[in-house]
């Protein structure tokens, strides 16, 4: 057994039965003047406590919309959820009242956004914005909330927290701002954190620090984590499993290192091949040809077929289901699935 396989933990770690979060056949569409934009078309995934699911995909693949649907922060209208379930601890959140959902937001499911500068309120001090979590959800006094805010800032390793608690977001560096976002999400020790491209706006060195911090805190509180990203490099170290999205569907799921080693979908292969590598210096960088589909007119059949090097006639007519994949000898590959008519050729070829 290699080190890579040892590192992979396939089964959910919950012990109270069932996963923390279950997304079932989720559809999200946006009703616009040009027509219906089908952003999410039947997404299924699970996250267990303590587990990290990385959702990978290009812009417009529906990864963020799925997250916003889970959070319940989609603007409805224009967004609409015609179908699907989002079960949190077994309860479907889509059938809850607005107030019940609001109480889950921030307290039990929290979200970290991409651009901390625009995601923090520019005219309120960070101490106020952090303390607000305690004041609103726990009815804490202003003074106690401020003390809590300082504690949180310490927790996410912001130097001189007590002195900086009254500073405003623009007075912090990008990395520090993202730490504040993380602190805000962690404030009430939620069971699930959704991080939507938490490091995209940061320097590479700061990216690693922020990811490490997030992973460390996740372990400590045994939280579920959904990490949304288009950066394969960020995912490798922290995620347990990966779901690759394309045009609003999951096209492949796999334990993280398996995916890197042997992708089972031509799109995943294309993504991996387009990572610049040192040993290919001087050669032309591979790019998946074509553009992501217009979500107003998703191609029939497999949405990836116009860009796929392996596309056959069946790909243009039949939508491939996300089905488990196996070894050549029929041996099971736990946690792995692919939505490709030709997964065998891709995985084993």
């Amino acid at each position: 057994m290699t080190i890579i396989e040892e590192a992979f933990v396939p089964s959910p770690r919950d012990n109270d039965g069932g996963p923390l979060l279950e997304v079932r056949d989720l559809h999200v569409e946006f009703h616009t003047r040009e027509g219906v934009v089908k952003a999410v078309n039947g997404v299924n995934y699970n996250v267990a406590a303590g587990e990290t699911l990385a959702v990978l995909g290009e812009s417009g693949s529906g990864k963020s919309v799925t997250a916003q649907a889970i959070m319940g922060i989609l603007d409805m209208p224009p967004a609409k959820i015609p179908q699907g379930e989002i079960r949190f601890r077994g309860q479907d959140m889509l059938t809850m009242s607005a107030d019940e959902r609001r109480k889950i937001r921030g307290q039990r499911i929290a979200m970290i956004f991409q651009d901390a500068l625009s995601s923090l309120n520019p005219v309120l001090s960070v101490g106020y914005q952090l303390g607000e979590m305690f004041r609103v959800h726990q009815g804490m006094s202003k003074k106690d909330a401020k003390a809590k805010a300082i504690e949180l800032m310490d927790r996410v390793k912001i130097p001189a927290a007590a002195a900086r608690v009254n500073d405003y977001p623009h007075q912090f560096s990008g990395g520090m701002r993202q730490r504040i976002m993380i602190a805000m999400a962690l404030a009430l020790e939620p069971e699930l954190i959704i991080a939507d491209e938490p490091t995209t706006a940061l320097d590479v060195t700061v990216q690693a620090q922020v990811m490490d911090l997030l992973a460390e805190l996740q372990r400590e509180y045994n939280m579920g984590l959904i990490l949304i990203t288009h950066d394969l490099g960020v995912v490798a170290d922290v995620a347990d499993k990966i779901a690759v999205m394309y045009a609003g569907r999951i096209v492949e799921t796999a334990p993280v290192h398996e995916l890197y080693k042997r992708p089972a979908h031509p799109y995943t292969r294309g993504l991996l091949d387009s990572i610049p590598r040192l040993d290919q210096k001087g050669q032309e960088l591979y790019a998946i040809k074509g553009l992501p589909p217009n979500l107003l007119r998703i191609p029939t059949g497999c949405a990836f077929n116009p860009r796929c090097p392996k596309a056959q006639d069946i790909c243009r007519t039949d939508i491939p289901a996300l089905l488990p994949v196996t070894e050549q000898d029929g041996g099971e590959l736990p946690g792995r699935a692919s939505a490709c008519h030709f997964w065998k050729e891709t995985l084993h070829g």
Binding site: M71, I73, R102, K103, I104, R105, G106, Q107, A110, M111, F113, D115, S118, S119, L120, N121, P122, V123, L124, E132, M133, V136, H137, M181, M184
Partner: peptide, 23 residues
């Protein structure tokens, strides 16, 4: 974006509008 954050924090609408949006 910061309004989206305020909603994601689970703040009541009153507070999102009255504090975060108005200022």
């Amino acid at each position: 974006d910061y309004i989206r954050t305020a909603i994601a924090k689970g703040l009541p609408k009153r507070r999102v509008v009255g504090v975060h949006l108005m200022r």
